[in-house]
Design a binder for these strands. Structure first.
Length: 221
DNA sequence: CTCCGGATCCTCT
DNA sequence: GAGGATCCGGAGG
């Protein structure tokens, strides 16, 4: 987990600057990134393999009916209206948490939902938090699974993902083979193929199930 | 492997 | 008061 190979961007100032862009363009860059949460029980790190972009309501070209911010600011989505690099964690279906990393300039209200990843540090702790997981690759193979493996709850919403107890390291180069397609579980027009804003590393075994949406476009770096 | 129902409560209308 | 950016276990092919 030490960036000794020097092929990761670890400076929080630089990472935050990179996150200031359009989440759809950042997606190939945040895939293969490593997010770490140091809890009292120890660290857990996940290499991100699947994300979804959600745009802000004021986006001139692509207002996003699938986004939690489509209806404007609320108490829950407040972190999304803030600066990039912070966490937006929400509770859903009565039992699950899901985590986003805020993107774009301050106030743009766009973000990347962390949909899946591979646990690369803290396997044992992640397995304790995910007793239902049968295999290593299932520890974080879904948005609520990923949040659970990292120990994220709404207590973490609004926290800086680039500062203790978190860290986020970006790869210096975009992930080589990125596929995209419609987002999962988004009802209404935001779930149509006009919004192919789900991005994943092709053929990675940790990418979540619910692959009903077939790959539509390839993003060639 | 796929399909299906139940769990469970916060958030906004 | 309705519904959700979901997961899990069991049944059946």
């Amino acid at each position: 987990m030490n960036p000794s190979t020097n092929n990761e961007v670890t400076d929080p100032l630089e990472v935050r600057r990179l996150l200031e862009g359009d989440p759809r363009e950042i997606a190939p860059r945040i895939l293969d990134a490593v997010l770490t949460h140091h809890s009292e029980a120890g660290p857990v790190s996940v290499r991100l393999t699947e994300v979804e972009a959600y745009m802000g309501p004021r986006d001139s070209e692509h207002p996003d009916p699938g986004s939690h911010t489509f209806g404007g600011p609320t108490a829950r989505n407040a972190p999304m209206f803030g600066p990039p690099g912070f966490l937006y964690v929400y509770f859903t279906y009565g039992m699950h948490y899901c985590a986003n990393i805020v993107c774009g300039p301050d106030g743009s209200a766009s973000a990347l939902l962390l949909r899946a990843g591979e646990i690369v540090e803290g396997d044992e702790l992640a397995a304790l938090r995910r007793p239902a997981a049968k295999t290593h690759k299932d520890l974080a193979s879904g948005p609520a699974r990923l949040a659970s493996a990292l120990g994220l709850t709404t207590a973490d919403t609004g926290r800086d993902a680039l500062a203790s107890p978190f860290s986020l390291w970006l790869p210096t180069l975009p992930a080589p083979v990125v596929a995209s397609g419609p987002r999962v579980g988004v009802a209404g027009p935001g779930g149509s193929t006009e919004y192919p804003w789900r991005f994943w590393i092709e053929d990675d075994p940790t990418v979540s199930r619910y692959k009903a949406a077939r790959p539509r476009n390839r993003v060639v770096p």
